[in-house]
Simulated scan of single mutants.
Amino acid sequence: MCGASQPHGPADRIYRPEPSVAPDAGLKRNRQPLETRTVMQTHVRPATAFDVAGIFHVRTSVTENVLTVAELTDMGITEASITEMINASTCAWVAVENGQIVGFSMIDPDEGSLFAAFVLPSHEGRGIGKALVRFAEDALFQSHANIWLETGKTTRAAGFYRRLGWGDEQDLGAGDIRLVKQRAWQQQGSQGADHHIPPTRNR
């Protein structure tokens, strides 16, 4: 069950999206008039039970570490079990854009682990995953000096976590690894309020 305590400290961290430039962006840059470009505003907040359907939509839409609803159910991961976890305390965060959940992260605060962080393929490369992981890390570091996760050794996810400072790799066999991250300083909490990722423009 989730039991992460609410952190203390300023809650004004700004998350800036990673630049995402298509190979031919220079050719397309001026094709669409500025006034017709759509500005997308994304923010991250603690998840509620009303977000569970959106969380499952994201989880079953990814292109890596793919699992169906039936496969998740066989693992004991159901909408009911996730709802129970979220209702117990703050242990999940969602990224929301125009009313749609486009990413989420979840932790097991008792075990000190990050066990889920996913973003819709259409929203990758914008810093959303990094923001979601940061929320999860901040919560875990409230009660653990060392936190861990498990993922596939050769996956894109493994490279993503390594770039965020996760390391001390342990081989678990069957192509899986465990990564660890140490608390380097007293973390300033952030999950108690909404946080906005600066808008990006769809061209």
Rank of each mutant, 00 (worst) to 15 (best):
Q41S: 12
F115I: 10
I55H: 03
G127P: 01
A49D: 10
L179R: 01
A131G: 09
A92K: 09
Q191R: 11
T60A: 06
W93A: 00
R37E: 06
E84Y: 04
H195R: 15
H57E: 15
E79S: 11
W93M: 04
L72C: 10
A47R: 05
E137Y: 04
M1E: 12
A92H: 09
R156M: 11
A145T: 13
I77E: 14
S89A: 15
R163Y: 04
N30P: 00
Q6A: 14
L179D: 01
L179H: 02
R178V: 05
V94W: 05
Q100L: 11
R163K: 15
Q191K: 01
F56V: 06
S143V: 06
S20P: 00
S20Y: 11
A131L: 05
Q186I: 13
T38S: 12
S89D: 15
E169H: 02
F135G: 01
A47F: 03
V62I: 08
R59A: 14
R203F: 10
L132K: 02
K130A: 14
P7H: 09
R162C: 07
V39R: 12
I147D: 00
H123W: 07
T83L: 08
W185E: 11
N65F: 13
R183A: 12
V102R: 07
P19L: 06
P46V: 04
Y161W: 11
T60Q: 11
A80E: 15
S81M: 05
F135I: 07
I101T: 10
E71L: 05
Q188K: 13
P23G: 02
E124C: 05
G9K: 06
Q188H: 12
R31W: 13
T155M: 06
M1N: 10
V69F: 12
G173L: 09
R201I: 14
A49T: 15
L149C: 03
E71M: 09
R59M: 13
F141Y: 13
G189F: 03
V58T: 01
V21A: 08
P198L: 15
R126F: 07
W166V: 01
